[in-house]
Amino acid sequence: KLLSSIEQACDICRLKKLKCSKEKPKCAKCLKNNWECRYSPKTKRSPLTRAHLTEVESRLERLE
Results as ranks from 00 to 15, higher is better:
7 E>F: 13
10 C>E: 13
9 A>R: 01
6 I>F: 13
14 R>D: 00
45 R>P: 02
56 V>T: 07
61 E>G: 13
60 L>N: 04
40 S>Y: 08
42 K>A: 11
1 K>A: 15
22 K>N: 06
52 H>C: 04
61 E>L: 15
21 S>R: 03
50 R>K: 01
23 E>V: 11
24 K>E: 14
36 E>D: 14
40 S>R: 05
18 L>F: 01
25 P>Y: 02
36 E>L: 10
61 E>H: 14
60 L>I: 08
39 Y>I: 03
21 S>Y: 00
53 L>N: 02
14 R>C: 02
10 C>P: 00
25 P>W: 00
28 A>H: 12
19 K>L: 07
51 A>R: 11
17 K>I: 06
3 L>V: 12
41 P>G: 06
53 L>E: 09
35 W>G: 12
19 K>D: 01
41 P>D: 09
35 W>Y: 14
57 E>V: 07
38 R>G: 14
33 N>R: 12
15 L>W: 11
33 N>M: 09
53 L>D: 02
20 C>P: 00
60 L>H: 05
52 H>E: 08
49 T>K: 00
56 V>H: 08
59 R>I: 01
24 K>N: 15
13 C>N: 04
9 A>Q: 07
3 L>P: 10
7 E>G: 10
25 P>S: 10
29 K>C: 08
17 K>G: 01
1 K>P: 15
44 K>M: 12
20 C>D: 08
32 K>M: 10
4 S>A: 13
63 L>P: 00
14 R>W: 01
51 A>V: 14
17 K>M: 01
13 C>A: 02
14 R>A: 07
63 L>Q: 04
37 C>H: 03
48 L>K: 08
54 T>C: 08
9 A>E: 00
11 D>A: 02
31 L>K: 14
62 R>A: 14
37 C>D: 09
64 E>F: 01
42 K>V: 05
29 K>Y: 05
36 E>W: 04
1 K>M: 15
8 Q>G: 06
19 K>C: 07
37 C>N: 03
51 A>P: 01
3 L>Q: 09
32 K>T: 11
23 E>C: 12
10 C>W: 02
47 P>G: 06
5 S>T: 10
32 K>Y: 09
31 L>M: 14
52 H>T: 02
51 A>F: 11
7 E>M: 11
12 I>E: 11
6 I>Y: 12
39 Y>F: 08
13 C>K: 02
39 Y>T: 06
45 R>I: 00
8 Q>E: 02
63 L>F: 12
44 K>D: 06
48 L>Q: 04
55 E>C: 13
20 C>L: 06
19 K>H: 07
51 A>D: 06
51 A>C: 09
54 T>K: 04
26 K>Q: 15
28 A>E: 14
26 K>W: 12
54 T>G: 09
54 T>F: 05
13 C>T: 02
3 L>I: 12
45 R>N: 01
5 S>F: 09
3 L>S: 10
30 C>S: 03
42 K>Q: 09
64 E>W: 06
49 T>S: 02
57 E>A: 03
20 C>M: 08
8 Q>N: 09
14 R>M: 00
37 C>T: 03
48 L>H: 03
42 K>P: 15
15 L>V: 12
43 T>W: 02
47 P>R: 08
47 P>Y: 06
45 R>T: 05
34 N>H: 11
6 I>M: 13
50 R>Q: 07
52 H>A: 01
36 E>K: 10
